[in-house]
Simulated scan of single mutants.
Amino acid sequence: MEKIKIGQTDLEAAPINLGGNVFGWTLDEKKSFEILDAFTAGGFNFIDTADMYSFWVDGGSGGQSEKIIGAWLKARGNRENLIIATKVGGATGVHPIDTSKKHILKSVDESLKRLQTDYIDLYYTHYDDEKTPVEETLEAYNEIIKSGKVRYIGASNISPERLTASFDASEKYGLPKYQALQPHYNLVERAYYETNYAPLAEKYGMSVFPYWSLASGFLSGKYRSEADFSKSIRGGGAAKYLNEKGFAVLAALDKISEKHQSAPSTVALAWLLAQPNVGAPVVSATNLFQLEGLLAAPGLSLDNEDLALLNEASK
């Protein structure tokens, strides 16, 4: 399997990024281990989590996902073979969104402890408080990179303006630069990313790892009416896509899936992988059957006719 280089780093990731948001939420530790084992057995090496996952289960401080991944890393002894990404700055039941230096320096040590590792490969600004000077945030990253706690940094929910300001500050003050971008991007959520972020990813050489790459499961095809929402605890998140555009996208996915003897989720991810600068869509799975369809995406090559059909349905 061909791997992609993350930004201007020496990190090489297989083209699917396993999201850990379900660990400690819809999956207990045993089931999480099964998913992680199957993911790595398939030749994939890129695991994504955040310090705030899964605080919403009990309204606490988060960290459940990191703890499960840390326990798995310790049990398997495979840390050096993996790229581990986590995030800082997001709100939990204990603290608000915070990208201050004080918060970052405290949070990185807590994440390292939960992950049972000495370093984080890719550390994201998860959310931006939009009041901390970008130089302060980057100075915090500079400190923890120099100390060996973090290798590289990425950006997730940061406005285009603040992202641009961050690169300006990096250049002006010799501070670390964001190497990866994790935006909301999929077949039914195209316009905002393609208008506002795609040019920045190209300009600054960031690798793009879209989250909600299957639109809360809608692009898997399992939610085609309100009655289907009960199929998953996350089903209600797909409600806003039950419209003319959403049904047109599902029809296109169905047609292409039949042509390639594949699943709609596989096709939706293959479309993302065909987009400029997209390196590894973030996916999550709650069972091995789901995971199998997601991991098949890098092996599905969509032709020009397929891409044109999807582009037209989703525009």
Rank of each mutant, 00 (worst) to 15 (best):
Q275H: 12
K203G: 10
Y241N: 04
T266P: 10
A274Q: 14
S232Y: 01
A274I: 07
P264K: 05
P264Q: 01
K245Y: 12
E244T: 13
L302K: 15
Y192R: 09
S225R: 09
Y211E: 05
V188K: 01
S257N: 15
V278G: 04
W271V: 05
Y193T: 04
Y241V: 06
L273T: 05
L288I: 14
E226W: 08
E226M: 12
Q275V: 08
N277A: 13
Q275S: 10
L291D: 00
S284F: 11
S213T: 04
P210K: 06
L200G: 07
L295E: 02
N277S: 13
G221S: 00
L272V: 02
A201P: 12
L309M: 15
A268Q: 00
E258V: 15
Y185F: 14
E292P: 05
A215L: 06
G217R: 00
A191W: 07
I233A: 07
A251T: 13
L307T: 09
E194V: 02
S230E: 11
G235E: 04
A296S: 15
S265A: 14
V278H: 01
F247P: 08
N287R: 01
Q261S: 11
L242R: 05
Q182A: 06
S262I: 13
F247H: 13
K240V: 12
V267W: 01
D306T: 13
S262R: 12
K259S: 09
A280L: 10
E305D: 14
Y211G: 03
A191C: 01
P183N: 04
N186G: 04
A191Q: 10
L309V: 14
W212Y: 14
K259N: 12
R224D: 01
L272D: 01
V208Y: 04
S207G: 12
L302R: 15
P281M: 00
T266M: 14
V283D: 04
P183H: 07
K231S: 01
H260G: 06
N196A: 08
L214T: 00
S225C: 08
S301R: 14
R190T: 02
T286W: 11
F289V: 13
E202D: 11
A248Q: 09
P199N: 06
E202M: 10
L302C: 15
N304L: 14
L214S: 00
T266G: 12
Y193V: 00
Q290R: 07
P276T: 09
S314P: 03
Y185N: 09
L219T: 06
E244S: 09
N243H: 11
L273S: 08
A215F: 05
G221V: 02
L269G: 05
V278E: 04
Y241Q: 04
P264T: 05
L253T: 14
N304Y: 08
L200C: 06
D228E: 05
P281I: 00
P281F: 01
G221P: 03
L242T: 03
A270I: 10
L250D: 06
R190M: 05
N196K: 11
S220Q: 02
L300T: 10
T266Y: 09
S262V: 12
D303N: 15
A201L: 08
R224Y: 01
L310V: 09
D254Y: 13
